[in-house]
Computed example of a mutant assay.
Amino acid sequence: MYKPAISTKPIRSLEDALDRCQMLGMRVSRQRRFILELLWQVNEHLSAREIYDRLNQQGKDIGHTSVYQNLEALSTQDIIECIEHCNCRLYGHNSEMHSHVNSLDTNKILDVHVELPESVIRQVETQTGISISNYTINFYGYQNSPDNQDNH
């Protein structure tokens, strides 16, 4: 599917996300707004089921199908992030290029911005013959490890 190249500012707020929807000609339905508001409120990665459950707990009337369709539309247009994790998809509000820290004991994923030294990028390019234009890194570890507890 062709996506037109649009020179736009990064999405850094709920308002930016809503503006991007309108700029792309996407209808900002009540359900779509509910999903975006929730993702910006919680500031974590959630499954479609978790999004559905939380919205319904808040008294927001939204169906399963509507949640899945809206998440697909928003992630396809890079308004929200979709990542594969433990055989499911998780959604977050950060659509800018970034890396993740995966906590193996809490099963949480945290967004981090990491910049590799230029020498590492050149080394990867030399090894692969591919000119690197962007990258993400996945870190894995334990939040509740004995090493972390000693520092508290």
Rank of each mutant, 00 (worst) to 15 (best):
I6D: 13
P10F: 06
P10K: 12
I11L: 09
I11M: 12
S13H: 06
L14G: 07
E15Y: 06
L18V: 15
D19L: 12
M23S: 12
L24K: 08
G25Y: 05
R27A: 07
R27L: 10
V28Q: 01
S29E: 00
Q31D: 03
R33N: 07
R33F: 01
I35M: 00
L36H: 03
L38V: 02
W40I: 04
W40S: 07
V42T: 14
H45L: 14
H45N: 10
H45R: 12
L46W: 00
S47Y: 08
E50C: 00
I51M: 03
Y52T: 01
L55A: 03
N56F: 02
Q57Y: 14
Q58F: 08
Q58H: 03
K60Y: 02
G63Q: 15
G63E: 12
V67M: 04
Y68I: 14
L71A: 08
A73I: 11
L74I: 05
L74G: 03
S75F: 02
T76I: 06
T76G: 10
D78Q: 10
E84T: 11
C86T: 14
C86I: 14
N87K: 14
N87F: 13
L90M: 14
N94V: 13
E96M: 11
M97P: 02
M97R: 11
H98V: 10
H98W: 12
S99H: 10
S99L: 06
H100S: 06
H100C: 05
S103I: 12
L104F: 05
T106M: 07
T106H: 00
T106A: 04
N107Q: 14
K108L: 11
I109F: 01
I109K: 12
L110A: 11
H113L: 13
V114N: 05
E115A: 09
L116G: 04
P117N: 08
E118Y: 04
E118P: 01
E118S: 10
R122F: 04
R122M: 08
Q123F: 03
V124D: 07
E125Q: 13
T126L: 15
Q127V: 13
T128I: 02
G129L: 03
I130C: 11
S131P: 06
I132C: 13
N134D: 15
Y135D: 01
Y135C: 05
I137V: 14
N138R: 15
F139W: 12
Y140K: 15
S145M: 04
S145F: 03
S145N: 07
N148V: 10
N148Y: 06
N148F: 04
Q149F: 09
Q149S: 10
